[in-house]
Design a protein around this nucleic acid. Structure first.
Lengths: 157, 157
DNA sequence: CATTCTTTCAGAATAATATTCATAATTAAT
DNA sequence: ATTAATTATGAATATTATTCTGAAAGAATG
């Protein structure tokens, strides 16, 4: 348990807002936006990366373009002991599983899964989930339509 | 309803894999990786952006670093008619709401919300959700711990 | 306060990448 | 086959990234 101090200031927040919105914005543009030198921006961005404030950069790909049209959420009850997460880690290794959350109340997980279609989902549940030791039951929720989906976080001040 | 043809080939898939993993990878590096000229990569990437295969680039920010430590999922029952989504669109406008999915079965939505803490969640539910017309009921699920969270999509071939 | 230590920034110099464009190669269409 | 359309290359130029030195600003110390 390492308590981390982030100590971000107003300038950091501005940089984060810009980069959250456009992960490929360049230092020169950020510098222009904030009225600073590019070299100063570079230093700050590197620091933000090192402090794990910025965790990753990624291109968001249209799931339909790669034939992953079905989105589902599955509640999974497991026999994991509190704290450990044998099942959770096994679930996390499945490529179609985008998220694994340990949830309160149900000694279980909520996972988010993308497959080609319902057949792909059934296959995944049978062939992959079925082989994970410790799963007691599942309850699947199919998404008909996604109205919003991003990971933009609210940045203070 | 516009049926779109994406027509992606092996090279596109390789580019997508690289960019999904590192949204800031540069054309020169992709070119080296694929044994092509940087200018050719640039053209393809631009095309992928225009065809909405690549939807967005973004920096993933550590929620804890900006004091958004609590993640919750909320099922929301609404009186929206099938197809319309008055409530869904209203929910999508809330900055703390990262995702809004129209789900099968319950004439309702599943939303993903980040707040500072449980107090922030209660405030949001009272002050913001409470003002959305058409919400019949809610059921909240608190996330204790996240094991995995990304939007990496499985890319074929 | 003065001094030291630390952090952050600016600005210049250089390295690397992005972008453009004309041409060649490849692929698809008829 | 021939033409048309797409995609790639390679060179030239524009921009940006990166490094580095010194200055400025802040924090900590006595």
């Amino acid at each position: 348990m390492t308590k981390v101090e982030y100590n971000l200031d107003q300038v950091d927040y501005k940089i984060l807002r810009l980069m959250q919105d456009n992960g490929r914005i360049n230092n020169a543009d950020i510098a222009r936006e904030l009225g600073m030198a590019p070299s100063a921006i570079l230093e700050r961005v590197k620091k933000l990366e090192q402090k794990d404030v910025i965790l990753k950069y990624s291109a968001k790909i249209n799931p339909a373009a790669v034939d992953q049209k079905l989105l589902s959420f599955i509640f999974i009850k497991s026999n994991d002991i509190i704290g450990e997460q044998r099942v959770g880690l096994a679930l996390a290794e499945i490529p179609e599983v985008q998220e694994v959350h340990d949830i309160a109340g149900d000694d279980g997980y909520l996972i988010k899964v993308r497959t080609t279609d319902s057949t792909g989902l059934v296959d995944l549940m049978r062939n992959t989930l079925g082989k994970v030791e410790g799963i007691i039951s599942t309850r699947t929720t199919i998404v008909l339509q996604t109205v919003k989906e991003d990971q933009q976080v609210v940045i203070p001040e």
